[in-house]
Write a protein that binds this DNA or RNA. Structure first.
Lengths: 139, 139
DNA sequence: ATCGCATACGTTATAAGGTTACGCAATCTG
DNA sequence: CAGATTGCGTAACCTTATAACGTATGCGAT
């Protein structure tokens, strides 16, 4: 496995490693600007530094972008080869995010896209609702 | 059906009708600011006028927001009751969008969310790839 | 070694997308 | 008619993302 003992993936540049660590240490998704703020102490100053690092990290499947939130999360199972068919459940109240991998869903999406005449390159699946903790207790 | 002969849904305010028409007449998705620009001739001046209209239109299921594009499209089957489980296929080359409704997908998403401990309120499913016309011809 | 190329970096400025705050007008409801 | 609700218009502002430019560094081929 391409990691050191400290859990940092190998082969990252300084900025990439900083951004990845910020996300890995966060409880939930962070916006690019929040990441920037958290890394000012490390010398980062401009949005582009963060966006460039994020771009590479997303390419490598180490970070996911949550489109409906304009935010980013560290991938919770970076070992997995395929990261472009991942679904996310997002709690509308507390913001908790769960990463879901499901082959059946992936197949259904591929089939649907194919039937509509599209090749499927990557998919965005974001489910909004309430997590167990935030759900009002049942009668 | 709640429409006039001209295809405009009934019960819309002026701004809502303008925004809806702009989207219905467009070939593809439009950003809020593009809508605004197209409606300046009709007297719209500020982003908020468009966003407010969009909010209502989305609530009523007449318009969908494409999160991965930060853009909006008119719903292609507004008669359908349920608009919160719609999937979209988006061509990365020409920008064409197809709206896909699929009960099996909807069920799978509901199941997945449930298994992860979430209630499912609404889902975002956006499939990126190439449409038939843009796909390089096979051998 | 050094040229050419690719990749990352840093900085400034700016574009694009979205919201807050405030007040007025019309409509509905009791 | 009082109060509530909904929509409207304007200005200012905030957040998110990219363009444009130049520098530095590693690396393979001549």
């Amino acid at each position: 496995m391409s990691r050191h003992a400290h859990g940092q993936p190998a082969g990252l540049t300084r900025n990439q490693a900083l951004v990845h660590r910020a996300l890995a240490e966060a409880e939930g998704p962070l916006s690019a600007y929040t990441i920037l703020d958290r890394l000012r102490g490390e010398g980062l100053r401009a949005p582009l530094q963060v966006y460039r690092a994020l771009e590479k990290l997303v390419e490598r499947g180490l970070v996911h972008r949550l489109e409906s939130l304009n935010a980013f999360v560290a991938c919770s199972h970076p070992e997995t080869a395929v990261h472009d068919a991942t679904a996310f459940a997002i709690c509308d109240k507390c913001g908790t995010v769960s990463e879901l991998a499901d082959a059946r869903l992936a197949r259904r999406l591929a089939t649907l896209a194919g039937e509509a005449g599209y090749t499927l390159d990557r998919s965005t699946v974001e489910l909004r609702g309430l997590c167990r903790a935030c759900r009002p207790a049942a009668g």
